[in-house]
């Protein structure tokens, strides 16, 4: 038995799959992807021809993410046709004076294309920042009208207390029918989990392939004569199980997915299903085809179940969904 495991560990592929690829993925690729994703942004251009102080104030108030705002002093519509800007917002030359005097109609010109996707979100944020000034100015004008003795500036500043430090009106969002407490888990971790499982199933697939090689090389035949086949199957099963569990243990430490009792059976179930494929499917490539189909289907079912698009008993036929069970 030891000889066979020795021969498995002598192969470079075993080490590449078990050590090299996970290390490269974990140390180089994953941080790189995280970094790239965090830098994904929507390019927006703001044009202020007279370089007003209020422009800076407004842009400061609008959260940067997910926008990358470039401020320029002249309008260049070519930025839209080259795709360098999702939308261009041109501020009125006397923006602040207009806001304070209540002449707020069309104080910002908004250039976009029919293919601009999320510039509306920026428009909403900008509108909200401008509107917090418009209402305060309006309130100050109304008060000055009825109480001329009141200082306009005082009223204008007083209104700020309803925005800072917390806005006066807030909504508290709660969830009903949130199935299996999953809504509190960061969905990024769920995606990471299923990608890791996909890798794990391919790793087990590789070990299953070795069983086929034993079969073609006649090793199993010979063992049958010695009536030791079962013994070797067990050795394969326990060995692969040990590798799978140690692999999963390290992976779980890294991605911090909350586990339920069923989750501990996921590696076992995956090894078992690969072994069943080996028993039922004669050709190595057909086994691969089955394994790929099952893994990809599980990947999709898991994501659909995680997004709560599907929720029925049959989805537990796909092993990764046990995490949600």
């Amino acid at each position: 038995m030891l000889i066979i495991w020795k021969s498995i560990f002598k192969r470079i592929t075993t080490w590449v799959l078990m050590v090299l690829i996970p290390i490269v993925l974990g140390i180089i690729i994953y941080p790189m992807i995280k970094d790239t994703v965090s830098q994904v942004s929507v390019p927006i251009t703001v044009v202020d021809q007279t370089d007003q102080a209020i422009t800076e104030e407004l842009l400061k108030e609008i959260e940067d993410s997910p926008f990358q705002v470039t401020k320029t002093e002249s309008l260049d519509l070519r930025l839209l046709s080259t795709g360098e800007a999702e939308a261009i917002f041109v501020f009125n030359d006397e923006l602040e004076a207009n806001i304070l005097s209540g002449n707020t109609d069309k104080i910002v010109t908004w250039y976009r294309t029919e293919n601009s996707y999320v510039d509306g979100l920026f428009k909403e944020k900008l509108a909200s920042a401008i509107m917090s000034r418009v209402v305060r100015a309006e309130a100050a004008s109304i008060v000055s009208h009825y109480r001329p003795e009141t200082e306009w500036d005082e009223v204008f500043k007083y209104g700020l207390k309803y925005f800072d430090p917390r806005p006066i009106f807030e909504m508290k969002f709660e969830h009903i029918h949130s199935a299996q407490n999953t809504s509190s888990i960061d969905s990024g971790n769920q995606l990471l989990f299923i990608i890791m499982w996909l890798y794990l199933s391919m790793l087990i697939g590789y070990f299953t392939k070795i069983l086929y090689e034993w079969r073609t090389d006649g090793i199993l035949e010979r063992l049958k004569l010695l009536q030791q086949t079962q013994y070797y199957y067990w050795s394969w099963f326990i060995g692969v199980l040990a590798i799978t569990y140690s692999f999963s243990f390290v992976a779980i430490q890294l991605i911090e997915v909350p586990l339920n009792n069923w989750a501990y059976f996921i590696p076992f179930g995956t090894v078992l299903i690969c072994f069943l494929f080996f028993i039922l499917v004669k050709k190595k490539w057909s086994m691969y085809a089955w394994l790929i189909s099952y893994s990809v289907a599980s990947f999709i079912i898991f994501l659909l179940a995680d997004w709560q698009i599907i929720e029925s008993e049959w989805m537990y036929l796909f092993i990764p969904t046990w995490l949600l069970g």
């Binding site: 839209l80 795709g83 109609d105 069309k106 104080i107 010109t109 908004w110 250039y111 029919e114 428009k123």
Partner: peptide
């Protein structure tokens, strides 16, 4: 607050 212009060329 906004005057919107939507272009085709993108």
């Amino acid at each position: 607050l906004f005057e919107m212009h939507e272009g085709v060329a993108s």
